[in-house]
């Protein structure tokens, strides 16, 4: 066991776990941040996507040890009131069905828009390629990413 300092959603947190513990389980079990979802544990579904130093990463295949000295943002850290442009677009276009994959989809979209404020379809498909949705919300996700880009630019 070891004590690892994690910088999560703007706060310093300490977890007391073995260093090879997947970041996902530290976030969920130790820090109670259950918005980050478990879907596969092998980096194959994107349900847990969160931001690590601003980039979309998969906490299920990153260890706690290698996550020290990074800045982690989970869905809870995006905007608790849900007023981030991506969250607003998701609600406006009624994207979710079961909703379970959506925190991961949203975090992938946030990372995409940070890099490409006005993404084309190919960039959207590339950025969200490994975010699986089992309910079939892809058409709305595509539209919502474009809508989020508009909202972020201050368009109505």
């Amino acid at each position: 066991m070891g004590r690892y300092r994690l910088h999560v959603n703007g706060r310093q947190r300490v977890v007391d776990v073995p260093g090879d513990t997947p970041l996902l389980w530290a976030l969920r079990d130790e820090l109670g941040l259950t918005g980050t979802k478990y879907g596969c544990g092998v980096g194959a579904c994107g349900a847990c996507v969160s931001l690590v130093d601003g980039a979309a990463e998969r906490p299920c295949v990153r260890t706690v040890e290698e996550s020290e000295r990074t800045r982690i943002t989970t869905i809870e850290g995006l905007s608790p009131r849900g007023d981030h442009a991506v969250q607003r677009a998701w609600v406006e276009l009624d994207v979710a069905q079961c909703g379970y994959c959506q925190p991961g989809q949203i975090m992938s979209a946030v990372a995409l828009l940070a890099e490409h404020p006005d993404p084309d379809d190919a960039q959207i498909e590339e950025a969200l390629r490994d975010n699986v949705c089992r309910c079939g919300t892809y058409p709305r996700i595509r539209a919502a990413v474009r809508r989020a880009a508009e909202l972020a630019r201050g368009e109505r």
């Binding site: 869905i75 809870e76 849900g82 609600v91 009624d94 979710a96 909703g99 959506q102």
Partner: peptide, 15 residues
């Protein structure tokens, strides 16, 4: 939209 939409996009929805 969906009844639980805001909880879903903020990670508050409980599965």
């Amino acid at each position: 939209g969906r009844a639980d939409a805001r909880d879903i996009v903020t990670g508050r929805a409980r599965y």
